[in-house]
Amino acid sequence: MNIFRFAGDMTHLCSIIVLLLKIQATKSCAGLSLRTQELYAIVFVSRYLDLFFTFISMYNVIMKLIFISSSFCIIWYMRCHRIVAQTYDREQDTFRVAFLVVPCFMLSLMINHEFSFTEVLWTFSIYLEAVAILPQLVLLQRTFNIDTLTSNYIFLLGAYRALYMLNWIYRYFTERDYSQWIVWTSGTLQTATYCDFFYYYILSWRKNERLSLPS
């Protein structure tokens, strides 16, 4: 464990806490993409299957349980909660996730470290995480002004993966045979999808006005 990875995990945790706070405090999920949340639930379930049969550390187990339970909790809020579910913008959140899930699954069947059930699903989760934010970014461009908590949520999600990139560089130079080119490639692409958001986020923050992405 190094400081970059720990900071990345904490940033990821913060993004989920910000999201839950937003939903709890405002009793609204306006501007949030349910499809992105569902994709993240698929990512966590398909990646953390090893939760049941390989113990790495208590930290690892606890964080995995938090990520899985929080993603389902958010989906429950957006689908079932009698107040929050009313504020979900179904008409705008129309990204066809099949266009993300199917190619990622095909790719994980072709490019993986080992052709086994858990390994393919793990690889699928790595590819899917790279594109899971797209429905949210598309929704962002449709709903012009977004609230601060949502933009903070997306910023923290991007920051978590950027910190993980520092972690990969650090581990590459400090550990002998550490190589995870699938994770590195996918993670780099994932962080790249946030770049334009980062640009407009910092621009709006400096001009101290509400963030609005050009459609």
């Binding site: 390989t54 470290h113 972690n167 045979d177 550490y178 995870q180």
Partner: peptide, 10 residues
Amino acid sequence: SEEQRAKDEL
């Protein structure tokens, strides 16, 4: 194993 370690990240 190397595989084991590779999966130690979240």
